[in-house]
């Protein structure tokens, strides 16, 4: 059963959350911006890892759903200046698109699934590029306002400046992390992991495997949508490249970096991803070649990711799990 977080870990996490809330008091706007990017990628990657680490499905098309969330939120904000509506609308749109494409994608697994998600992700990219009237084509959508967050009859918060918006991103991200933590430790989470370990055994245990894959796919799409919807008001402008498959690669990288078999892996990975990027781009414009080299090194030698290595070092009592399932004949 799940390992209860030790007391030391609980104290660390509480301190971390407190620090995140106090961060705007000391940070300059660039650091705040970077922190928001990290939080957004964390949410995006957690959704990705529900599919990859927990359900065993490697998607290369998550940027498509991210873009649906971003464009959905942007379109709403450009029409109705209410951040709450924008976020909810973007997330719901991403969930619906993920559900519909998921029906096609989850009929396949393994390599087929990866190729299909890649293709459908690129389909969304093509739509963003070609449907000028709706998406603005190449130029994208500009002037997306950071409109006030209004829940009718409950609250209205202005979020126009970066500090205010940071709190929106932080709260939504923390809620998303909490939700995902509960999900992977729930019976549903157990069911997905069982399907990952053996599809046929799960089916013969009575699980309608395909339906559960669709559930995982839709939730991952929703998380991509949350991330995308948070990005639109932050950047004020969104363009088709956010839907491109190279954008789908970001949660893949973050998750690989942090570790796929530890819950917090994608979050640590998102942090490392931006730190590494921030350092490398100071020295060279060719940062992808370094990123590629890191991927190759991780795949060849460190498939567990950074956090798994730390967990093994710091918590020797925790049973180590086999890092890689061998391919069945």
């Amino acid at each position: 059963m799940g390992v209860r977080p030790s007391r030391r870990l609980a104290v660390f996490l509480a301190a971390l959350v407190a620090a995140l809330f106090l961060f705007p008091l000391v940070a300059r706007s660039y650091s705040l911006y970077l922190a928001m990017q990290i939080l957004i990628l964390s949410v995006f990657s957690l959704g990705f890892n529900l599919l990859f680490g927990y359900a065993g499905l490697l998607s290369f098309g998550q940027a498509g759903f991210f873009a649906v969330g971003a464009y959905g939120c942007a379109k709403i904000l450009l029409a109705v200046p209410n951040l709450f509506l924008g976020l909810v609308g973007g997330i719901v749109a991403a969930g619906i698109v993920a559900f519909l494409l998921g029906i096609l994608c989850v009929r396949h697994t393994r390599i087929y699934f990866s190729m299909l998600t890649l293709a459908f992700g690129m389909m969304i990219f093509s739509i963003a590029l070609k449907w000028r009237d709706f998406t603005g084509g190449d130029d994208g959508l500009v002037g997306i306002p950071r409109a006030p967050l209004e829940i009718p009859g409950l609250l209205t918060i202005g979020v126009a400046n970066l500090e205010q918006y940071y709190y929106v991103v932080l709260v939504v991200s923390l809620l998303s992390v909490l939700g995902m933590y509960r999900l992977v430790h729930s019976p549903l989470g157990l069911t997905l992991q069982a399907i990952r370990d053996s599809e046929s055994r799960a089916e013969f245990a009575g699980v309608p495997v395909r339906n559960y894959r669709l559930v995982a796919f839709t939730i991952a799409g929703l998380y991509a949508g949350v991330a995308g919807a948070l990005l639109a008001p932050l950047e004020n402008t969104i363009t088709p490249p956010i839907a491109h498959w190279s954008a789908s690669a970001e949660p893949v990288m973050a998750t690989l970096l942090g570790g796929i078999h530890v819950f917090g892996g994608p979050i640590v990975g998102a942090f490392l991803f931006f730190m590494i990027k921030d350092i490398i781009v100071r020295f060279t414009q060719y940062w992808l070649i370094w990123l590629g080299a890191i991927v190759v090194i991780l795949v060849m030698g460190f498939r567990g990711g950074v956090l798994s290595i730390l967990v093994e070092r710091l918590m020797p009592w925790r049973p180590t799990r086999p890092m890689v399932t061998r391919r069945k004949a």
Binding site: L58, S114, L288, I289, G292, A293, V295, V296, V299
Partner: peptide
């Protein structure tokens, strides 16, 4: 898949 994906990034740059 991930390994060959790493190659894409390297070769592109």
């Amino acid at each position: 898949l991930l390994l060959t994906f790493g190659f894409i990034l390297i070769l592109d740059d």
